[in-house]
């Protein structure tokens, strides 16, 4: 039996474990994909997911329903992931890099990739680039917001994003070439 978000929220507010489990089962796949985007390793993503859902259950009474439940949970996952990444970012401080966006002028398309393959590409990015790419390209944050959140300069955010984009374009083109070659063999 499928429960609505409101039912699940009510159950979770009463600390009913069955509701908590159903809410987890409903959204864990989506949120795990988010956690994987911000992680280098699967174990790290699992830790983020676990920590985030514990926060969800602990704070669900504060959820005011002014946004959708999955959006609220996703924000918690992203914030948890950022907390995980911040320590790394302090260890490996980001510096401005040369703007590489002019290097690949041809348009790249993602139509030949499924989301698991794309996740693998994102995970290959250097830590700083990975976080900023996620925040800018996928979550839709502005560079000044990212700069404030990660306590870096806006310029750093821009240059790290450019680097991420450049690397991704390069890998996508390379993978596309491989795919074309494989297709040509048939």
């Amino acid at each position: 039996m499928a429960f609505s978000d409101d039912d699940l929220i009510d159950g979770c507010c009463k600390d009913q474990r069955s509701s908590q489990q159903q809410l987890y089962e409903k959204y864990s796949g989506q949120m795990y994909a988010v956690a994987l985007r911000y992680s280098k390793a699967q174990q790290e993503a699992e830790d983020i997911l676990q920590e985030a859902f514990l926060k969800v259950f602990q704070n669900i009474k504060k959820f005011r329903k002014d946004s959708s439940l999955p959006y609220w949970i996703k924000r918690i996952v992203v914030n948890t992931a950022l907390n995980h990444q911040r320590s790394k970012l302090y260890l490996y401080p980001m510096v401005d890099v040369t703007d590489l966006k002019s290097k690949f002028t041809e348009e790249v398309t993602l139509s030949n990739f499924n989301h698991k393959e794309l996740l693998q590409l994102v995970k290959k990015l250097p830590s700083g680039c990975q976080v900023i790419f996620n925040l800018y390209a996928i979550e839709g944050y502005k560079h000044h917001e990212i700069a404030k959140s990660l306590e870096i300069s806006e310029g750093t955010s821009k240059s790290q994003y450019a680097r991420a984009k450049s690397l991704l374009q390069k890998w996508i083109i390379e993978n596309n070439d491989i795919n074309y070659e494989q297709a040509g063999e048939f």
């Binding site: 474990r17 489990q21 796949g29 699992e46 676990q50 794309l118 390209a137």
Partner: peptide, 28 residues
């Protein structure tokens, strides 16, 4: 470029291993 990424990731879903819920259950 960004829209393509956003669209590709919007519906992304990966089933986490059961151990994650087990640990959440234990901590709760």
């Amino acid at each position: 470029f960004e829209k393509e990424w956003r669209d590709a990731m919007e519906e992304a879903s990966v089933t986490p291993p059961p151990a994650v819920w087990n640990e959440i259950d234990r901590k709760l």
